[in-house]
C-alpha cells in the first residue's frame, strides 16, 4: 500500500458517500444518472466476487464490502425510494451499448480464461466507461449541481491517483497489470474535460454549466 493508492481509495470512498449523502439529504436524485450507478454497482459486484475466494486484508475486505453496499443503496434510492425525482428523460444513454462490447472484450482480452478472471476483466473495462451516462446527462441538461460536480471530481481524482500508484508500483515493486493500466488511463481521459470545467468554474464558486 502506497500513499497514492490510499488517498485514491479514500477519494473513491468520499465520492460514493458524497453522492449517497446528497441524495439522502436533499431527498432527490435529480441530475444523477441512474444508469451510471447501475453500471458501477455491476462493476463492484463482478470485481469483488473474490471476497468469497480469497482474503487479502481487513482493509481490502472492508472497503470492498462498503463499495458494494453503498452502490446498492444508491441504486435503491434512485430507482425505488426517490424514484419520483429521478430525471429519467435526461438519462437516455443506452447501457447495452457499453455492456455488450465491454463483455465481448473481456472474453477476448483477459489474463486467464476462467469465470472469475473474465468477470474481473469485465468489471475493469466497464468501470472505465461507466461514468459516460452521467457525463452524457450533464451534456444534455447543460449543467450539474455543485455536489454532483464534487462527486465527479473526487471520482476522477481517484482514477488519476491510481495511475500515479501504478507508476510507483512499476518502479518500486516491478508490478504492472496491462489491462488495469490501459483501462484506467482510458477512464481518466474521460474525466479530463470535466476536470477543466471543474477547475475553471466550480472552484471559483460557480455552478457547473456548459457553454450554450
Amino acid at each position: 500500500m502506497n500513499i497514492f493508492r490510499l488517498v485514491g481509495d479514500l477519494s473513491h470512498l468520499l465520492a460514493i458517500l458524497l453522492l449517497l449523502w446528497k441524495i439522502w439529504k436533499t431527498r432527490s436524485c435529480a441530475g444523477v444518472s441512474g444508469k451510471s450507478q447501475i453500471m458501477f454497482g455491476l462493476v463492484y459486484i463482478t470485481r469483488y466476487l473474490d471476497l468469497f475466494t480469497n482474503f487479502i486484508s481487513i482493509y481490502n475486505t472492508t472497503m470492498k464490502a462498503i463499495f458494494i453496499a453503498v452502490a446498492i443503496a444508491t441504486i435503491y434510492l434512485i430507482y425505488f425510494k426517490f424514484k419520483a425525482t429521478y430525471d429519467s428523460n435526461h438519462d437516455t444513454f443506452r447501457m447495452e451499448f457499453l455492456i455488450v462490447p465491454v463483455g465481448g472484450l473481456a472474453f477476448l482480452v483477459n489474463h486467464d480464461f476462467t469465470a472469475l478472471e473474465i468477470l474481473w476483466t469485465f468489471s475493469i473495462y466497464l468501470e472505465s466507461v461507466a461514468i459516460l451516462p452521467q457525463l452524457f446527462m450533464i451534456s444534455k441538461t447543460g449543467e450539474a449541481e455543485t455536489i454532483t460536480s464534487h462527486y465527479l471530481f473526487a471520482l476522477g481524482s481517484y482514477r488519476a491517483l491510481y495511475i500515479v500508484n501504478w507508476v510507483y508500483r512499476y518502479y518500486f515493486e516491478g508490478f504492472f497489470d496491462l489491462i488495469a493500466i490501459v483501462a484506467g488511463c482510458v477512464q481518466t481521459i474521460l474525466y479530463c474535460d470535466f476536470f477543466y470545467l471543474y477547475v475553471t468554474k466550480v472552484m471559483h464558486g460557480k455552478k457547473l454549466s456548459l457553454p450554450a
Binding site: 480469497n54 487479502i56 486484508s57 481490502n60 472497503m63 500508484n165 497489470d177
Partner: peptide
Amino acid sequence: SRYTILKDEL
C-alpha cells in the same frame, strides 16, 4: 501468468 495481477487493489 505474464502479468502481475493486482488483485489487492480495489
